[in-house]
Amino acid sequence: MDDFVQAFLNLDIISQASPILWRGLWQTLLLAVMVVPLGLIGGVILALLSTAPLRWVRILAAGWVDLFRAIPPLVLLVFLYAGLPFAGLDVGAWGAVAIGFFLNTGAYYGEVLRAGIDSVPRGQTEAARSTGLSQAQTLAFVVLPQAVRNVMPDLISNTVEVVKLTSIASVVALPELLFQARQAQNVTYNASPIVAAAVAYFLLLWPLVRLMSRLENKAMAGRG
């Protein structure tokens, strides 16, 4: 038992590592605050294209979404970070993460929001247009607010996934929480910093996970 505590819950080591772990946590939060809006912007664009009146636009958008749902995000990130410089395009770790998340999470948010837009009855658009609202105004004030509300559980769940996914930025040496924890583990030969990082992730995301499973259960019960 003592060995276990020494290896995994070594408070001395955790307190030694705490300054860089805090810095890592801060970077993770910063990363989340950057990539969630980026993904949402990409998602709104894709959702609008996926519900466009032109058939070929819808097909292109669906193809784009499927393409980036089929490529593992880490592969995309490694390609942007390590592959692009061969084409003379060095976007750096932050650039690679920003582009990669825009493409990957954009596709996922896009799919969620498309389902949301599809769930708004046609009569809503007709009523809005009959009062003289333009197509853009109808989308902004009538369709999108309802679409977002209808798929709120999926949006929250996707956001949790995005925040978790920021951990892959450690692979391209972006100093977020997992990266810093591994640095500390390398120096101390002790797994406790990684355990501390895991606890931090858990505390950060647990409330959202609880909320999610409540919403999901409610949504499913409504369908049964």
Binding site: F4, S167, S170, R182, I194, A198, F202, R210
Partner: peptide, 22 residues
Amino acid sequence: DLFRALPPLVIIVLLFFGLPAA
């Protein structure tokens, strides 16, 4: 809840680099 909240990469790293210590 634990495995829904933890990033998969964190779990992998923990099991791979952590378990040998045990």
